[in-house]
Amino acid sequence: MSARLRPALLGLGLIVLIALPLVAGKFGLDLAARIMIMAIFAMSLDLLVGFAGMVSLGHAAFFGVGAYALYLLSPQYGAASLLVSLPVAIAAAALAALVIGLLVLRSSGVYFIMVTLAFGEMFYYYATGARWLGGSDGAYVYQRPSAGPVDLGQGHAFYYLVLIALAATYALLRVILRAPFGHALRGIRSNEHRMRSLGFAAPRYKLLAFVIAGALAGLAGYFDAAQFGVVNPELFGWRLSGSVLMMVILGGMGTLDGAIIGAAVLVLLENFLGDLTTHWLLPMGLFIVAAVLLLPQGLTDPAALWRAMRERSRV
């Protein structure tokens, strides 16, 4: 995307999302909220995969921590306090990311992929057996959180809070990516050894990126639990980790915008295919396999797609 086009499209998208409740019904708004939640989640992973070069296959672990935090902070049949539960959920996810990060960052490359997947599954298996977390059936969050006059169960409060969170996440990531921190992360992705030989304490940068990404994933998980009113171990699982990675890659990683587009495409596809057949994962799987073989650059770079197709036709 050109430098002029992007802010224009972003502004347009924001206006559409702000105005959406005027025209869309409940189904449309729920779907839009779902896309925005997944977009937050996908952007958090893009920070790791697209900018720091850390391919995590266990990112859902922190999504799940955020979701379960809301469950644990909600009174049995009442609403949790928004002002308490939201920060606590984010902090819990950040803490989990710090602990897991200290372990997984001892590895890199393909080890990192395997180790993050394994630790994500550790959360999953733990949750399936833990009675205080509702076991393998999960548990209900009966009411959405509220704070004074703001009740996420009423009107469009939930939709707009998710929109604010999306905008804030986007802005925060843009700021830190433009800062020396973000430049250093890109350097680490490009050539970690050289960064260290220049004097950067690369592990600290990677750990902080891991914690920030974990915290934002927790934010998304918190909203997920609030939206559907239910938590279950699948929220920690590798299938969700895999599908969010898919969003990042198919949208074109290392752009943030791509993560949003990828989230929208996959959520819509899931909805659309899910209506057609219970076996919608089959066309999804075929789509992914085909995408890897045909589109090495993701979907956001039409020029690259065009080039790739031309080169293919020449061979």
């Binding site: 992929i113 990675l245 898919m246 890659i249 990683m253 089959l282 999804m284 799987g285 396999v289 073989l293």
Partner: peptide
């Protein structure tokens, strides 16, 4: 490795 992960993940679904 990213693309290997992606393709083989798609295979699992299939």
């Amino acid at each position: 490795h990213l693309y290997q992960v992606l393709l083989t993940y798609g295979l699992i679904l299939i």
